[in-house]
């Protein structure tokens, strides 16, 4: 980046502001103002039709005693805790395999990545079909091994595991990122380790994982944030309004309940309070992860 601090020219400043003006305008209208307004709305009762009426901290008080908020938080936490680690371990494993595949890498990489292109709505529908308790493909395959598969889409204990398994179908992007990281690890390290008699496990543990820890950490952060905001697949599969409005408590993620409060019940004030709580939770978790990463992540050479 700019190494020398040359004198700032007036013409340059004007031109620069012209170039960045779309973002400045967008930031003010669609980020800063909404951020402030969400804060204000969270202190009001607002249904879009009547003006907001100030209620102080009532929304927040209601929120902590709302059983559904607690349920949604628990569902979301369970889903994130199950899906993020499994997803990362699986994508690491797949990246290792791809790296060994030689000339066939390209073909398998495409195969692993393709599901990531599926629209999340279609993934929600596939979840209902593949994991159907009676006729789903998953249980049929389990049956070959003599396993009597559960009712994934209706039994409350199996709804979240089903969502987690389905989410593994789209690990493709993480695999690509880890594969790129793997290819940046110098071959010399492995050659040296082999000379010293280190086996596959030792090499993976002491070379591969530390050398790719930057990418792994990036995925942990990004996947956690995404998992905490999961919406589309679960909403598609388990919530909606057909001949009768339906829903499934086991799949009630926080983002889904927030959406319902805001746009189905028109409790805009309450939903704003929920949004702020989510914001705080995500910031706190990310902060903890960043702090932990300082201990575990190895940055080669520490270049920017």
């Amino acid at each position: 980046m700019s190494r020398r601090r040359s004198a700032v020219r007036a013409g340059d400043t004007r031109a620069a502001w012209l170039f960045i003006s779309p973002w400045v305008v967008g930031f003010l209208i669609f980020t800063l103002y909404p951020l402030i307004y969400t804060g204000y709305l969270s202190l009001t009762d607002y249904d879009v039709i009547n003006d907001p009426s100030f209620v102080g901290l009532d929304n927040f008080r209601a929120l902590v005693s709302d059983d559904k908020v607690m349920l949604a938080l628990r569902n979301t936490a369970v889903f994130a805790l199950m899906s993020v680690p499994v997803k990362i371990v699986l994508s690491f494993f797949l990246a290792l395999l791809l790296n060994k595949a030689g000339r066939a890498t390209g073909f398998f990489r495409t195969a692993f990545f393709l599901p990531k292109m599926t629209p999340p709505v279609a993934i929600g529908i596939l979840l209902l079909l593949m994991f159907n308790g009676q006729s789903g493909l998953v249980n049929e395959v389990l049956g070959w091994f003599g396993i009597n598969g559960p009712a994934w889409t209706t039994d409350p204990t199996w709804v979240k595991p089903g969502l987690v398994l389905m989410s593994l179908w789209t690990v493709g992007a993480s695999v690509i990122i880890l594969l790129a990281a793997l290819r940046n690890v110098p071959q010399e390290l492995y050659d040296a380790a082999r000379v010293d008699g280190a086996g596959w496990w030792a090499q993976t543990r002491h070379i591969t994982v530390p050398m790719t820890s930057g990418a792994i950490f990036f995925l942990v952060i990004v996947d956690t944030i995404a998992a905490l905001q999961s919406f589309t697949e679960a909403y598609t599969a388990y919530f909606g309004a057909g001949n009768s409005t339906y829903g499934n408590d086991a799949a009630l993620f926080y983002a889904i309940y927030l959406f319902q409060q805001a746009f189905q019940f028109l409790h805009m004030g309450y939903a704003s309070a929920m949004a702020l709580l989510l914001f705080v939770i995500i910031m706190a978790i990310t902060a903890v992860q960043v702090r932990l990463s300082k201990r575990f992540v190895f940055y080669a050479g520490e270049q920017s």
Binding site: I29, P34, L41, Q229, A262, M268, A275, L276, L278, F279
Partner: peptide, 12 residues
């Protein structure tokens, strides 16, 4: 998170 700006954006 998108949820934080979603409601005012809708109102705009």
């Amino acid at each position: 998170p998108g949820a934080v700006t979603m409601i005012p954006t809708y109102l705009i």
